[in-house]
Amino acid sequence: MKISKVKVCVLRIEGTNCEEESYLAFKRLGAKPEKVHLKQLTGADVTADEKRSLSDYHMLVLPGGFSSGDYVRAGAIFAARMKSRLSKDLVDFVRAGKPVLGICNGFQILVETGLLPAMSGVMSDVPEAVLGTNDSGRFECRPTLLRKVNRGRCVFTTKIPEDKISLIPSAHAEGKLMFPIERRDRILKELYENDQVVFKYVDPEGRLAGYPWCPNGAVDNIAGICNRDGTVFGLMPHPERVFFRFTHPDWTRSPDGSGDGRAVFESVLDYASKKL
């Protein structure tokens, strides 16, 4: 399929607030993104013109923000609303090999929905992980460096060389990836064996480092994970914010080249154009 035919559903509800830049990232690369309200998929309060079906799209993006204020728990309300009405559509979507991307709040939503880490199957009934409050106890808006540790499974990072360090900034209060204590080691082992760990927070020398390079205290410095097929990907940092070089936090020191986040969108569009 040509990239210009790839239809991307950028899904939003009240409080989703990174939809515009997520939409633009795909548009700039020639794909066909559309900002879609969850109610357009569920059919509530919409006209026939406005109604959409998830199966019309080739890719689903859950952008960052504070969906429903992140009250209850980050991403919990969006996830519950989605899961109660669209469970089957979501499972079919993932089974068809169509990619799903969750950035920041989107990652939190994917975890709350059970689409990540999805240790057994496509979608777990209850969340198997949580993105907890940062160790600092504060919202942290700061540049973060991510080393790609994925060995090739994740379709969102195929254009990033292994071990490359990318500057992809973070902005969240709840980004500490954690697993249930009693199952933690087993889940981690499986994640590594399945090549589901994608990005880790590192310092400028590429070492796994503590705060502030790891802004939240995530287990093993993990910033992003994918499902077993590598088609569902969630990460806390914001690749859409560094699509261009000139939005890198230190770009005036080295102004040439493209933004580090661009490769994430290029990778998945490459996958879509070849496999869908």
Binding site: C18, F139, C141, H238, T247
Partner: peptide, 14 residues
């Protein structure tokens, strides 16, 4: 400053 998101909308160049 780090508690305020100063980059959302992805158009903060400086």
């Amino acid at each position: 400053i780090r508690q305020y998101d100063h980059e959302v909308r992805a158009s903060t160049v400086i």
